[in-house]
Amino acid sequence: MKPINPMTLTLFLLAVLTIGGCQTTNSADPSGNLYEQLGKRSGIADIVEDLLYLIVEDDRINDHFAGIDVKEFHTNLTDQLCNVSGGPCTYTGRNMRESHADMNITDTEFNALAENLILAMEENGVPSSAQNRLIERLVPMYPDIRNL
């Protein structure tokens, strides 16, 4: 058998994946608008609601959420994700560094929240590509939340 050149194989693999990926993206949403892929504000509100249920059940982080005003938190986080994803919302909560300054959030806790957000998006049928795009836009908040 003639040996396969690794570079050729890489390009082939990437080409196959890219074509496959584009087809999925096109059928889901031709404009690639993240806000719409998340189901607009009502879809985001559903995701945040499921996220809150997951947080309450999660012993790694539920302490940090004890005693919060759930309705206010839900509204603020929904507005924030709506805004971050390019939707017509204004986030009126405190800035991330300020609101997490005294919480000593660890990597374990940060990962736990990220995991719950991903699970909440999955529960709401958000496609992988939209999940990844939203997380890409949230990751810059990592140093603020960890107070680094």
Binding site: T25, P127, S129, N132, R133, E136
Partner: peptide, 9 residues
């Protein structure tokens, strides 16, 4: 790299 190729990581 998040969402680097067709929304894939």
């Amino acid at each position: 790299f998040f969402a680097a190729i067709a929304g894939r990581n």
